[in-house]
Amino acid sequence: MNATATRFGIWMALVPLLIAILGLGLQGLAIIDTSLFFTWGYFLEVLIAGLLQGVLYSLVALGFVLIFKASGIFNFAQGSMVLFAALTMVGFIEMGLHWTLAFILAAGVMVVLAIVIEKVVLRPMVNQPHIILFMATIGIFYFLDGFGQTLWGSDVKVLDIGIPKDPMFVLPNVFEGGILINSFDLVAALVGAVLVAVLAVFFQYTRVGRALRAVADDHQAALSVGIPLKTIWAIVWSVAGIVALVAGIMWGSKAGVQFSLALIALKALPVLILGGFTSIPGAIVGGLIIGAGEQVAEVFLGPLVGGALQDWFAYMLALGFLLFRPQGLFGEKIIERI
């Protein structure tokens, strides 16, 4: 864990340097090819918007990491859990409840859902190969997708819990016109940061958190010291459900609650490959890199290739990573004693 922390620190220290190099590169390109446009103020603006967007990717990726870490299952249904949670939340708000109460109820629903999934789907398949469990999560994906819409309707819904959405202009003295930051994105990023901090403390310092990590390392040994796998799985799915709820609220208030929410899971995939499937800091850093990278690429390099870079940039980046660092930036190396 210490090694991870050190690596995290080094990366954080390198960030301003990387940003400066990236900016200089783009500036150089703009000089060579006059069809490209570049100013430092605009560059930072796009970068910050991208980073904040990246936090939302991280929130989704986090749900995957939690379940993958504890049970080795790649939970395809995470995306539909995000949708289902957001739909439930909106449903409760439409019933006239205050959003805090709706949040608590929706969190309760996600916990119940986790327990049901553990009992009905995971328990009967406990000794099956991982691919079978993965298939089962595809089933859960479509079930939740349909069930949520049957329950709450399939219209596009507006979710508003009062997060300010006004644009802010910062540093007007340094850059001409200042840098535009969306205050909603800023709030979402803060919420994400708090959630991650809470999870990190939970995993690192509590008895259950330790047991979760133990189960992630070695099921058999965890059983042999008396850690009940079933309880642990129910807890992990509950936590992943609540993370999905937070992600759903943030995405939902940004883009409306609708079916396409379930598909942001696809954007979480490159984030996971970048950050490593087993690492919480990895999910965060991966999300930030993907978010910032695709925004900057779209705005400054898009004109070179005729746009729509945003749709595939993340996957290209992930592909590159798979070639050179398959366990991701922070993924747990397989410890092999020689």
Binding site: R213, A214, D218, A221, I227, E332
Partner: peptide, 18 residues
């Protein structure tokens, strides 16, 4: 079958889970 990614002390503490 130690928990490889946990420290020795954390390994010992998991033993006290029950």
């Amino acid at each position: 079958h130690c928990f490889e990614h946990l420290t020795i002390e954390e390994n010992l503490l998991t033993g006290a889970y029950t």
